[in-house]
Design a protein around this nucleic acid. Structure first.
Lengths: 282, 282
DNA sequence: GGCGGCGATACCGCCTGGGTATCACTCCTG
DNA sequence: CAGGAGTGATACCCAGGCGGTATCGCCGCC
């Protein structure tokens, strides 16, 4: 199987429509039909059920979609990491660390300081990501190492070391009746009238259905809370540097959040190893 | 990057010789030279140093070799798993469990029994592997789940659950002076004159240099020990069903061996989940 | 029943991957 | 030192396959 075929299939499987998929791929629809048909023939597996109103994935198609995404990520990572290795060989070597924007600020600063103090430390490019993006950038080789947060991020497929565990707090508009309470239970927070929890985008950029405003980053979130249009439950470290007009109240029964440092399992980079060492020694 | 290019590069990087690589790939040498040159041009990275006596990998080339192998494994896994999904959809679904031949026999039997007793259990095809092969078959989709042994097998990149931990024993010919000892230290075993530890093949099939007979499987090993040509240090469970003429003596300071059940991190198979559940409940 | 939407098929042209022949270079070696 | 062997690069050609346009077959819906 060629990566071209996999890309074609993923496009069709995501669009569930040959025409749109072809458009997205920048080719005409007939070659796309042929390519998918060839794939099905060679695999001996039906991948799509063609109905008169678009297509749906078969069982095998769902398997291939998942596997193809992983394979394409691996190919993309191969390309990126090779390019970066070539750059590192000529110019100043660097390592890319992915972190969620607005999270673990303090930990991140300490980590960068500790690593920079190591002998042989190289430049660290910090790649700030939206929620959930770190896993993708790590898989596709745009980053060499990442700070993730269990259980929010899916650490499966990476090597990880736990760094820090913390409880969560509710962020409320200052002056809200509940903001004076010493602590809250999760059920109380989700049930606050007129202060719904926001909806975060899925990896594909779409939003789940339901109430609550759509939110893409930390700034939007704090702004919405300050405006009294939402509340949020975030790790304790998120209360540092809280803007005016917001209060944090511990949520006693929210799951603990563990910050972990994660890297691709077959990484041989000494820079990554150094960062991990510095992180675990914090 | 197309998988064809990656396969070409891996062949050259492994052979370190365009002619032999081309032969292995079943193509002529010139197209191979062109393909590699194109790859280097598009990546903007030198991959190989051409000397008059063959070629050597550059730094970037070593990175690409590692990444390309991973990517090709992922592509191969996509293909295999899709085919298997199609078969499962029509015929009798099954799950492939990889285990090291001659290891964890008892655990394996108990696991198969326990899983078979579960409601909704499917057929389990047991794929017996040579040492180190399980990791490969799991990565390339020839198996869905595997029993691995830390620290011998590299569990990086898989999800795992620990099942069992045990010490190691030295296997000696019956009648050997040391065979009556209640226990041994590792240094004593490695220093036995005329009974060297055997050499196991590397993943690519070649053997490391050094003393000791070359061994490919458990039968060869026990036979060589019975002949008084070698000794071995194996997990305790390897002493069950020991053939005549062999004795086992505990090695007190050998690292403990942990048997783990491992599966690809993004597996969604209910059969794999069932096996893992049955295994952890043992 | 006609029309619109969607995927499949037919057919064609060109790009590119693969083949053969040959070159350029570097070590050996007699 | 000349010649030959070995290795990768280059030149050139051919054809298979990929992508394009035109069109068909099928289904659902006004």
């Amino acid at each position: 199987m060629e990566t071209r075929e996999l890309r074609y299939f993923v496009a069709v499987a995501e669009e569930l429509h040959f025409g749109r998929a072809a458009q997205r791929l920048g080719i005409a629809q007939p070659p796309l039909s042929r390519a998918i048909a060839g794939l099905e023939r060679r695999l001996g597996a039906p991948l799509l059920e063609r109905g008169s109103r678009g297509v749906v994935l078969t069982e095998s198609g769902a398997v291939l979609l998942r596997e193809a995404r992983a394979a394409l990520d691996a190919v993309e990572a191969a390309e990126r990491r090779t390019r970066r290795a070539a750059l590192a060989a000529t110019g100043r070597p660097a390592v890319v660390l992915a972190a969620k924007a607005g999270a673990s600020d303090e930990l991140l600063a300490k980590l960068l300081d500790a690593y920079a103090a190591e002998p042989g430390a190289v430049d660290v490019d910090v790649l700030l990501c939206g929620p959930g993006e770190q896993v993708t950038v790590l898989r596709t080789g745009r980053a060499d190492v990442a700070l993730l947060h269990r259980p929010f991020d899916d650490t499966a497929g990476f090597d990880t070391e736990d760094l820090h565990s913390e409880g969560q707090v509710a962020i409320l508009p200052a002056g809200h009746p509940l903001s004076t309470r010493p602590h809250l239970r999760l059920a109380e927070v989700t049930a606050i009238p007129d202060l719904p929890l926001p909806r975060w985008p899925r990896p594909d950029g779409t939003f789940p259905d339901g109430p609550g405003p759509q939110v893409r980053d930390h700034t939007q979130l704090t702004q919405l809370i300050a405006l009294g249009r939402a509340c949020a439950v975030v790790p304790e470290s998120g209360r540092t540097g809280l803007r005016d007009g917001l209060t944090a109240v511990p949520v006693t029964d929210a799951t603990h959040v563990t910050t972990v440092i994660a890297w691709p399992p077959h990484s041989r980079s000494t820079a990554v190893a150094g960062l991990v060492r510095a992180a675990t020694a914090l």
